[in-house]
Write a protein that binds this DNA or RNA. Structure first.
Length: 324
DNA sequence: AACTCGTGGGC
DNA sequence: TGCCCAAGAGT
């Protein structure tokens, strides 16, 4: 009986060892000098970087991470910070509830783990905002554990080099997890470098668009290249961004971050012809104009505001909306 | 399993 | 310009 699910062809130990050698050797020279990779970076610094890097490019994270770490060097520092300060420090990194969850994780670390970042994968998984990827990443990069790290870069490298497809698809499959496990070096220290190296290869060379196959250390092993670099099978187009609740939420959050005082809710929900607010609150004018310029009806704006309130990203007061 | 949740840069 | 993408998590 053939199982109903597709099982990946096993990777020969010889090929696996060749990939380990070629990619980790490449990494020794090519790796970027990122602050959260330095030996003196604390586990907390690694955790903060991993949360910020969720769906957010490295170049945008770098300055925010540095400010964040000098302001809140440890979990206890962040745990006692005002939420509004946290959301303003998050700035425009996007997905601001990550900032809320990071602070919730800091409080859990203080309350339940004596103020120290847990080293155990399962314990990390229980913290808010930490899923399978981030738990593995912290266990590996902060504590040198042997865990299989699977992010979008690693999935793409595996898809091309081993499976022979251009892109891995949107969701992580069980077959991809099995393949990643198969490819993991048995040796703990090598496995740590392997995780780092494959991720870096995906970020710098084996990129989603215009991969630099001429610079790839495993070009001669690559199943996708050998197959003639077939184009990706087109995936269903996702939701448009223009005119969505998300766009409105983002614009409202930008107003609240820049506001010195509560913002009347009508300013945030009116669709057109607003009496532009008096310039008494310098800084809000620009984000307020951007919000107003969006093509979104009032009911959508109200829905977006309600969503922010129910997510704890904003609070209603008598004077209007503010950060928590 | 399919959706939601921000933001800005590249092509 | 419009679309795709970036060290995902939670529901």
């Amino acid at each position: 009986m053939t199982p109903a699910y597709a099982s990946p062809a096993p990777v020969s130990p010889a090929l696996a060892r060749k990939l380990h050698r070629e990619i980790t050797t490449w990494y020794d020279d090519a790796q970027r000098d990122l602050p959260w990779r330095r030996p003196d970076c604390s586990p907390w610094g690694v955790l903060v970087s991993e949360i910020m890097l969720q769906q957010t490019p490295v170049v945008r994270v770098l300055p925010r991470w540095s400010e964040w770490m000098s302001r809140w060097p440890g979990p206890a520092d962040l745990a006692r910070a005002p939420v509004a300060d946290v959301l303003r420090a998050w700035d425009s990194l996007g997905y601001p509830r990550r900032a809320l969850r990071l602070q919730a994780a800091a409080r859990a670390i203080v309350d339940q783990h004596d103020g120290r970042v847990p080293a155990d994968h399962g314990t990390l998984l229980d913290l808010p905002g930490i899923g399978a990827y981030t738990a593995a990443a912290v266990a590996v990069f902060a504590f040198g554990d042997r865990q299989t790290v699977i992010d979008t870069n690693i999935r793409r490298v595996h898809a091309r080099a081993v499976t022979g497809t251009a892109l891995p698809g949107k969701t992580l499959t069980a077959a991809q997890t099995r393949l990643a496990d198969q490819l993991m070096p048995r040796d703990r220290e090598l496995s740590v470098r392997w995780n780092q190296a494959v991720m870096e290869l995906g970020a710098l060379v084996c990129t989603a668009r215009s991969p630099k196959c001429g610079e790839c250390p495993v070009a001669t092993d690559c199943a996708w290249l050998a197959a003639g670099s077939p184009p990706p099978v087109d995936s269903p187009t996702g939701q448009r961004w223009h005119g969505t609740d998300r766009q409105v939420r983002g614009a409202v959050m930008a107003v609240l971050r820049s506001a010195q005082s509560a913002v009347p809710e009508e300013w945030l929900t009116v669709a057109r012809e607003v009496n532009m607010p008096p310039g008494s609150d310098p800084g809000v004018d620009r984000p307020l104009e951007k919000l107003l310029a969006l093509e979104a009806p009032e009911d959508q704006r109200r829905r977006a505001v309600d969503g922010l309130v129910s997510d704890g990203l904003a609070v209603r007061t008598a004077a209007g909306l503010t950060l928590p």
